[in-house]
Design a protein around this nucleic acid. Structure first.
Length: 138
DNA sequence: ATTCTGACTTGCT
DNA sequence: AAGCAAGCCAGAA
């Protein structure tokens, strides 16, 4: 993954406030570049320094492999949850997920500006350093 | 160029 | 709720 892209993704994730959440696909859309898998890849490799638990699957399920820690964080910041997380805490096998319909981040105008800036910068950098290698001359 | 592999998503059982 | 097939985008071999 290009470093420019990594930085852009992390910048967007840092904007998501406590108690809110977005899906991997949401981030890709806001950025207008890459897809859900790319965002997931970035988070798995470089998400350690940002609120990674606020980025999850479209189903509302926490990042694979980090459910337990994420749940504690959701409870701390009051993120809307659905399902039986009580038993998950006790036995580890309860079924729950983030109520994305209620928790999905609604960017403010200011956030959108910030995102646009990041997205434009990303585009600029991606185009300045490379030239299409399969461009057909007509 | 081809194939495989992912913190993905959607639709269908 | 859980599993699966496709579709998806990129990087690695």
């Amino acid at each position: 993954m290009r470093n420019e892209y990594v930085q852009a993704v992390l910048a967007v994730v840092r904007l998501v406030p406590a108690g809110a959440a977005v899906s991997y696909g949401d981030v890709a859309e806001l950025l207008g570049s890459g897809g859900p898998r790319q965002v997931g890849s970035v988070m798995s490799h470089y998400g350690g320094d940002v609120p990674w638990w606020r980025v999850l699957k479209a189903s509302g399920h926490a990042p694979p492999g980090h459910e337990a820690e994420a749940l504690l964080l959701y409870l701390e910041e009051g993120t809307p949850l659905v399902g039986d997380y009580g038993s998950y805490i006790r036995t580890g096998d309860g079924r729950w997920r983030v109520d994305l319909a209620a928790a999905r981040w609604a960017p403010t105008d200011e956030d959108f500006e910030s995102i646009d800036t990041v997205a434009e910068e990303l585009e600029r950098r991606l185009h300045s350093l490379s030239v299409p290698d399969d461009g057909m001359i007509v």
